[in-house]
Design a protein around this nucleic acid. Structure first.
Length: 436
RNA sequence: GGGCUCGUAGUGAAGUGGUUAUCACGCCUCCCUGUCACGGAGGAGAUCGCCGGUUCGAACCCGGUCGAGCCCGCCA
């Protein structure tokens, strides 16, 4: 019967067996300490018997062990208890030195990220590396519980698509039994169509972008958190996102506070309602403060995104900020124009700690208008099998609806405080990397 | 797609023209009875990314090439 590191306190005084990976050796001569890692943490073992310590000679960190012995309470031991007089069985000996250190924090300098990713398989055994993905898993479970609590249905949409796309981002094309298929750059059309069936849907799944972007915030494959819901307006969407981000941050800090401290992460300042600033308002503030003139530009510069987040943290007590009032002539065909000012689109971007993590919008739900916008804005053919199903959903009754897409890795990156989105990605894919 | 920067033991770094290429971590051997970034002594490990050029002499200067990073554009 195997005991896990997290359950040690229940077994003090008993003989137990632990199984896991050799994580650290500290050989002092007569007294020798080894740490064994399992899924729940580390267990310290005190080895004094020369024959037992001899079994570990030449064994590298990562060797798989089974250790049987008496669990003794001792306040000098990390965790308050340790195994004494062990009988060690080496299940899998490892003799090759690991290519990357796994028993102390790794450096994350940007120049050396390549090494980190090249040896990801072994590097993730490092507890501090792994913590990033424990946090990411909690982000996902918090999201699922948030969405379930609000009666969203989780859906799974296809990633192979016919050629027509929403425009904007570049798409990958591939041979599909003689036809050309594309990889989904977002579940946009599908989640909208499913509002007609479920009213509220969400999906957490990979999307693919063929943009030749080599930056610290772009990848060719990333995980998109997509949600779409009917019978709402733009303010409802803002409040939903405010609640969601707050819930995720609370969930993560409740569960991983100790690990986050090791990353020097601080809990983000987030008010119950994230402040909203218009695009033009931000341009004006930025231009006035920096002397760089961005007034009239149809998007935010990366530097502007960083600047306005600093501004919001200092002046609005929020490390997230919504950007509203985007120009309608730059919008996607499925976006909805503002009722009062048709020069504007009902779109909001969510900036968090200097980077855009979300784009959300109200969608045009009237069949004739979507049809018109498709032709004019996307130069799309309504009979194209890529567009026809969406139009069909509109034709047969779609309520006012809206939704958003959020980058899971960017969110993880900003919560942990990493400088490159790839550090928050298990096996990153970018224009230069397809392995491991 | 444009611009800038960087490739030196397994890992991270120092070395800006002079012949045995330096340091730290890791690894190996020995010593060490409370370690927890253990400590001490010794040792192994590098055709200085690759190709060519300049030079009496190149890790260092020049050209090319391959690889990587950052910024911009674009996006989540």
């Amino acid at each position: 019967m195997r005991t896990l590191a997290k359950d040690l306190e229940k077994h003090v005084g008993k003989t137990i067996t632990i199984e896991g990976w050799l994580h650290k050796k500290r050989l002092l001569g007569g007294l020798n300490f080894i740490n064994v890692r399992d899924r729940s943490g580390l267990t310290q073992v005190l080895v004094q018997d020369k024959n037992e310590i001899e079994k570990l000679r030449g064994l590298q960190i990562g060797s798989v062990l089974s250790v049987k012995g008496e669990l003794i309470s001792d306040k000098r031991a990390p965790g308050g208890a340790e195994i004494h007089d062990p009988e060690i069985e080496v299940l899998v000996p490892v003799t090759d030195e690991p290519p990357i250190e796994i028993d102390k924090p790794l450096q994350h300098k940007s120049e050396n990220l390549d090494t980190l990713f090249e040896h990801r398989v072994v590097g993730l055994r490092n507890l501090q590396e792994r913590a990033v993905f424990d946090v990411q898993a909690t982000i996902c479970s918090s999201l699922r519980s948030f969405f379930e609590g609000r009666e969203f249905t989780e859906i799974h949409t296809p990633k192979f698509l016919a050629e027509a796309t929403e425009g904007g981002a570049e798409v990958f094309t591939l041979d599909y039994f003689g036809k050309t298929a594309t990889l989904a750059q977002s579940p946009q059309f599908y989640k909208q169509m499913m509002v007609g069936a479920f009213e509220r849907v969400y999906e957490i799944a990979p999307v693919y972008r063929a943009e030749p972007s080599a930056t610290s915030r772009h990848m060719t494959e990333y995980t998109s958190i997509d949600a779409e819901l009917g019978f709402i307006d733009l303010e409802d969407l803002e409040q939903l996102l405010s609640d969601l981000l707050g819930r995720v941050v609370d969930g993560v800090w409740d569960k991983h506070e100790i690990q986050l401290k090791k990353w020097n992460a601080t809990k983000p300042l987030l008010p119950p309602k994230i402040p909203v600033l218009s695009l033009e308002e931000i341009h004006e503030k930025y231009s006035k403060a920096t002397g760089e003139n961005s007034v009239g530009e149809k998007d935010l510069r990366p530097d502007e995104e960083r600047w306005i987040c600093d501004y919001a943290k200092k002046n609005l007590k929020s490390e997230a900020v919504f950007v509203s009032e985007w120009p309608a002539d730059e919008m996607k065909f499925y976006h909805k124009k503002n009722d009062k000012d048709p020069k504007l689109a009902d779109r909001i971007d969510l900036l968090f700690r200097g980077v855009e993590i979300t784009t959300g919008s109200m969608r045009e739900n009237k069949y004739e208008i979507v049809l018109k916008q498709l032709k004019e804005l996307a130069k799309g053919d309504p009979t194209d099998p890529g567009f026809a199903p969406l139009l069909s959903a509109m034709k047969y009754g779609m309520p006012p609806h809206g939704g958003f897409g959020m980058g899971l890795e960017r969110l993880t990156q900003k919560i942990v405080g990493l400088s490159n989105v790839k550090e928050a990605t298990l096996f990153p894919r970018d224009i230069n990397r397809l392995t491991p």
